[in-house]
């Protein structure tokens, strides 16, 4: 248990190991850890930034949605107005068309009636003559009374 030269050996060894640690261990380790620290700090900052960007994007999205909604509402309103306008217009046009068609139909009907009346008048003359011919055949010469009968037919 005496102090002896082991002391010197240990001092030397201590010096060597401490020097070794100072040279080859500590600075490298410090470097690694500090680099990782900055990496982590950067990562956290980036994450923060990302979050903020996300929030901003969210707000922007809301604004855009709102604008789109308003615009859509306006378009729908416009379309509605326009649609009712078109319907009114169509209704008016259809009314006019109806009037026109009705009028032409009336006119046609009247023409038809007049034509039928003319025809009937002609046929009635012929019938009357035929009847009269049959009645008078025995006593009256058709030729003798022809002009009389024509006059009659024209009068009818």
């Amino acid at each position: 248990m005496d102090l002896n030269a082991t002391l010197l050996g240990q001092m030397l060894a201590f010096g060597v190991f401490a020097w070794f640690c100072m040279k080859f261990v500590w600075p490298l380790l410090l470097d690694i850890i500090e680099e990782r620290q900055t990496q982590i700090a950067d990562g956290l900052a980036a994450a923060d930034k990302g979050n903020r960007a996300l929030e901003e994007a969210e707000a922007e999205k809301q604004a855009i949605l709102e604008a789109a909604r308003t615009q859509a509402r306006e378009i729908i309103d416009q379309a509605n107005t326009r649609a009712s306008g078109i319907v009114d217009e169509a209704r008016g046009e259809a009314g006019n068309e109806k009037e026109r068609i009705l009028a032409s139909a009336h006119a046609e009907a009247e023409q038809d009636a007049n034509r039928a009346r003319e025809e009937l008048r002609g046929q009635l003359g012929a019938l009357a003559i035929a009847g009269a011919e049959k009645i008078i055949q025995r006593e009256i010469d058709a030729n003798a009374h022809k002009d009389l009968l024509d006059r009659l037919a024209a009068e009818i």
Partner: peptide, 19 residues
């Protein structure tokens, strides 16, 4: 005993091995 020029070989060797 009492000699400074003595080495405790075991202490020295284990100390060096561990270092």
């Amino acid at each position: 005993s009492g000699n400074f020029w003595a080495f405790n070989v075991d202490s020295m060797v284990f100390s060096l091995i561990l270092g």
